[in-house]
Design a protein around this nucleic acid. Structure first.
Length: 455
RNA sequence: GUGGCUGUAGCUCAGUUGGUCAGAGCACCAGGUUGUGGUCCUGGGGGUCGCGGGUUCAAAUCCCGUCAGCCACCCCA
């Protein structure tokens, strides 16, 4: 058979792995420096743990795991006969691959609530799976890097997440903008137009504003049953202009009479104020009413990161998150507010690759390749590799006494910067000829100095 | 789940109205050069033209089906 892998999954060769590891090193370091603790949870959970948390669309995208053995044993005759897949599903499948890291985290917090000290801060870097149709920047298996803090309503954590987002992307040297919005503002708008119960429809439509334009958003809202008076007010709100504070102030006046609006305005203002007086060098923050985010569990601030870098053409979001007030409630632990963001490792690495361009790909960490001349020189060659490796420098010995052309070509192909040559003359003198493959320069150095020369 | 585009060598692709259309570049291997690579020269290996069926004297080329990939919508990291 012709070997292949399912679409939306990928192998990562050495060049990609160097890039990915650099990224993971950065996020891990930042996460732990901000006081977050590591956590891992299983790749699969009970299906019931996952369903109902991500909205109807999300539930469809959960990868289900067929029960082992005779999975039809427990299948109801009725569901089978009627080909009723919705009814049949829970009868033949009780496990599923995790869809994100936030819900398993909430499950963990509830299970371990008596062992944990709150506020509990954790980071988690693991793959998640979605039964989506892949396309550019969209995979069916991808790695999320989550930081969440649970058990505190303090808006200082919103600030902290803005700081973490900023630090990570600054260290990676990727230009971004952090979009910020608040679910209670959206709820206030829904209230204002008299459709508090259609919050989801409203936010989904508003979310498309910068993509399809105001007119099409209004058309979609009309289709969903919003009347002309409502559309007028939506338009009024979406047309607010000015800087973050001006937009927020204007919105405050519009939403003054609503139940949830003022809270949203106040919290939003607080977060923006904290960001200003934090003293941190933050990435640009843009208060954006059209940011909705589909995940149904968000209740407060919502974040999203977009690339804003002349070297990149990436348009989809590379990080996202928000505050959720009751994610643990469904597992039996109410009043546990949490907030977190997730870095989309795969998309970010795509951006890094795009920025780095085709050249300068690292293929190996090896600094020096020791030439193999054959049996007579082998002992000395082995001594060179051993000495260099013991000095903490990556070294390799060519396995056969092949032609130098071939050995040099190997070093060249892998991007190993130095070649070490030691024949009779060098051995007699206790020296090694070290050649820099990039410049072509070569020099004889003492065996003990090889590591320092190629480091 | 809906729609569009594309499948020819390891990779990127060319292949005219069906008739030397099985090709190029890169990559790979060998030699030129048994202690000096990345340049250059010479030679070489490698393809059921995604798969199945049909039309035709003749199909990579036209038709039908199918599978796969990509892109967009939906949704999302």
């Amino acid at each position: 058979m012709k070997p292949s892998i399912p679409s939306g999954t990928r192998d990562f060769g050495p060049a990609e792995m160097y890039r990915r590891n650099r990224f993971f090193d950065v996020v891990r370091e930042v996460f732990s420096r901000y006081g977050y603790q590591p956590l891992e949870t299983p790749a699969f959970e009970y299906l019931a743990t996952l369903t109902g948390k991500y909205g109807d669309e999300g539930d469809k995208l959960i990868f289900k795991i067929l029960n082992s053995g005779d999975f039809l044993a427990d299948a109801g005759a009725e569901a089978l006969a009627n080909r009723d897949h919705k009814k049949l599903l829970p009868q033949i499948c009780d496990k599923a691959l995790r869809y994100d890291l936030t819900v398993p985290f909430a499950r963990y917090v509830v299970m371990q609530q008596h062992q944990l000290t709150f506020p509990f801060k954790r980071w988690q870097i693991q793959p998640v799976w979605r039964a989506d149709r892949p396309q550019k920047g969209r995979y069916r298996e991808f790695v999320q890097c989550d930081v969440d803090v649970i058990g505190s309503k303090s808006l200082l954590y919103e600030l902290e997440l803005l700081q973490i987002l900023s630090e990570v992307f600054q260290q990676l040297d990727v230009g971004i903008v952090i979009k910020l919005n608040h679910r209670k503002l959206l709820a206030g708008i829904a209230e204002l137009v008299g459709s508090a119960d259609k919050l989801i429809d409203l936010t989904v439509a508003i979310d498309k504003l910068d993509k399809i334009g105001l007119e099409k958003v209004e058309a979609e809202l009309k289709e969903k049953g919003f009347d002309d008076a409502a559309l007028l007010r939506v338009r009024e709100v979406l047309r607010l202009t000015g800087d973050n504070d001006q937009k927020l102030a204007a919105l405050g006046r519009v939403l003054a009479g609503t139940a949830s609006g003022p809270t949203g305005v106040a919290e939003m203002a607080e977060v923006l104020a904290l960001a200003q007086r934090s003293g941190s060098r933050l990435c640009p923050i843009e208060f954006d009413l059209s940011l909705a985010r589909g995940l149904s569990y968000y209740t407060g601030a919502i974040f999203e990161v977009k690339v804003q870098d002349p070297r990149s053409t990436f348009t989809s979001s590379i990080s996202g998150g928000g505050r959720y007030d009751d994610l643990t409630g469904i597992f039996g632990l109410p009043d546990m507010s949490g907030v977190g963001v997730s870095f989309g490792a795969d998309r970010i690495c795509d951006v890094l690759a795009e920025i780095a361009g085709a050249g300068a790909e690292t293929k190996t960490a090896t600094r020096v390749l020791v030439v193999n001349f054959g049996a007579a020189e082998l002992d000395y060659a082995l001594r060179i590799v051993r000495t260099v490796r013991q000095a903490g420098v990556a070294a390799d010995l060519y396995p056969e006494a092949a032609k130098l052309k071939k050995q040099f070509g190997y070093a060249d192909a892998l991007g190993i910067p130095y070649v070490a040559i030691a024949g009779g003359d060098e051995i007699a003198a206790g020296q090694v000829t070290v050649k820099n493959l990039k410049t072509g320069e070569q020099q004889k150095v003492a065996l003990a100095d090889v590591a320092a020369t190629v480091r």
